[in-house]
Design a protein around this nucleic acid. Structure first.
Lengths: 155, 155
DNA sequence: GCCCTCATGTCAACTATGTTGACTTGAGAA
DNA sequence: TTCTCAAGTCAACATAGTTGACATGAGGGC
């Protein structure tokens, strides 16, 4: 969990471009870095990290989600989910309860504390995006979204 | 190393949007995924992965780079660099030789085989970007770049 | 020649995030 | 009662990173 925000590799390296699209590859890399850097710092201060945030993010947007559905969305195994999920339950950032009729599955929900942390972490990321979109204007933002959708839906 | 390209979590999850910028956060996540998916599959078939590709990518663009400079650019410790770098040397995808006058540092260079693998892996990524840019046109591409630069340079 | 610095290399111990496989538990349904 | 299914748990492993400590080998200063 990066303490060393000033450490090497955090400035964008200036590499010769072998292909005209190399700049785009590097922008994807450094863009992800730029968006997540402050959020990860905040999470580290809470003793949490990106996998915890991903869980909180999804549960915030799918209250009463079952564990199996969460595994599906996150794309990890239940064993990999186990540790971070239990930590969030122990910390009382999440609650789990049996469904009223469907007792086979457990339903997850954020507590007030969990909502606060999820919101603050995501706010760091949204702040970065908001500033970039403000500079780009509405049409630039729409263009960015269109390009990103094409990239995301490639597979 | 993801074999299961059809596995869970690889389709974009449809989550309720709590904030208007949530779509942007998810596009960054799935965008990175979409760009790297095929390249990572290709690399896995070669017995390599993302860190190896990052080394090959940088050395391709900075022939005769010293180890210390590589560490700087990658932003990892020399101990972390050690394993993937030695694998690439053993596989003869990289060569290292002493500098003619500055014997203290070793200079890294890609072999022909290393160049081929670097190029093919990066080609998978560039292909995704090219297709997205073709749909967006020149002005959409420029707008995307401007937004990504603002995000990347946030820190 | 002797020592200091500096780049590199290596060993150990640790953390975090993921994997597969095997097994248990507990609730509902046939 | 038995079968199924969601969830939980344990072990072993792989990968990618961290710090700390120490070794090696080349140049430079004196």
């Amino acid at each position: 969990m990066a303490k060393t925000s000033q450490a090497a590799g955090l400035h964008r390296a200036s590499l010769a471009k072998l292909h005209d699209l190399d700049a785009a590859l590097e922008l994807m890399y450094y863009g992800w870095r730029g968006m997540t850097l402050e959020a990860d710092d905040y999470l580290a201060k809470q003793g949490l990290s990106r996998p915890h945030h991903r869980i909180l993010y999804v549960v915030a947007r799918r209250p009463d989600i079952a564990i199996g559905a969460l595994i599906e969305i996150l794309g990890i195994s239940k064993q990999a989910l186990n540790r971070p999920l239990n930590l969030l339950l122990e910390r009382k950032l999440l609650t789990s309860k049996r469904a009223p009729e469907q007792h086979r599955s457990k339903l997850l929900r954020l507590t007030a504390a969990g909502q606060r942390i999820e919101q603050r972490a995501s706010d760091h990321e949204r702040k970065v995006m908001r500033q970039a979109f403000e500079r780009a204007g509405a049409s630039g933002t729409a263009a960015w979204m269109a390009v990103m959708e094409a990239i995301a839906d490639n597979n």
